[in-house]
Design a protein around this nucleic acid. Structure first.
Length: 231
DNA sequence: CCGTCTCTACGACAAACTAT
DNA sequence: ATAGTTTGTCGTAGAGACGG
């Protein structure tokens, strides 16, 4: 396979001069530039991406940790991430975990190995401490409120929005509340807050009125059946 | 001082080489 | 035969050489 040294050898100029031509840098004589370009075209030479990455010290790649993609919330989040990355000439690599802690740790190890310039954690499978310990390898942004440290985070005010939704239901005359949730409160901040607010706004609310692991359409249908029978 | 060009470090890995 | 060491690979960018 042709490399930059082959081009240099064939044209009679140095590797650096060839590099300048490839990257449109100034200070290359036009006749030499033309000759180098003609050899490049002749051999269909394309610079090695790994070697470029080595030199830049950057991958121009952002890893996005997410549980799954077929979900409106993560779809929308991803769409925004991709749009901004595109404008900044960054590539985005999707890192689906299906909430498997081990898989997520594998991605974190790849991040430590400089596979990505930065990491966006939309929802995590490991405890926060585990993810925070990887901050020394590069920037990590969390899509949840991080209060303990100065970690970068972007989040919506879940407490406020859930409160509004619950108050609306109460106003509509709802007395007995049923809730669908994805994961245990031990792992999910969202779950924890939702349960706390349910108990606060609906004092008679009991945890047996929670339908757990409701993360897809099928479980949604099961939840509807469950609540219908419980009514 | 400017334009043009060469040399070399960078990091991880494989291949080649040397010593035992 | 095995373990340890050295060298080469890949493209880029900055330092520096050189001529005018």
């Amino acid at each position: 396979m042709t490399n930059i040294r082959d081009i240099a050898k064939l044209t009679g100029y140095s590797v650096s001069t060839v590099s300048r031509v490839i990257n449109n840098h100034p200070y290359v004589d036009e006749t030499k530039r033309a000759k180098i370009l003609s050899v490049i075209n002749e051999l269909s030479y394309v610079p090695n991406a790994s070697a470029r990455q080595l030199s830049y010290g950057k991958t121009k790649n952002i890893g996005v940790i997410l549980p799954y993609t077929d979900h409106p919330y993560f779809d929308q989040l991803l769409s925004g991430i991709i749009e901004v990355a595109f404008n900044e000439d960054y590539q985005v690599t999707l890192l689906p975990t299906n909430y498997q802690a081990e898989r997520e740790r594998m991605y974190l190890e790849e991040f430590a190995g400089k596979r990505f310039d930065g990491l966006i954690v939309t929802s995590r499978a490991n405890n926060l401490d585990v993810l925070l310990s990887y901050q020394k390898y590069g920037p990590i942004i969390f899509c949840e409120e991080i209060k303990e440290t100065e970690a970068g985070c972007v989040f919506i005010d879940r407490e406020q929005s859930i409160t509004e939704a619950l108050l609306y239901l109460k106003k509509q005359g709802v007395e007995k509340l049923g809730v669908t949730l994805g994961r245990s409160g031990r792992l999910s901040f969202n779950t924890k807050v939702t349960l706390e607010l349910c108990k606060k706004i609906f004092p008679d609310f009991k945890e047996e009125n929670v339908f757990w692991n409701c993360i897809d359409y099928e479980q949604g249908v099961n939840a509807a059946t469950y609540f219908k029978e419980k009514r």
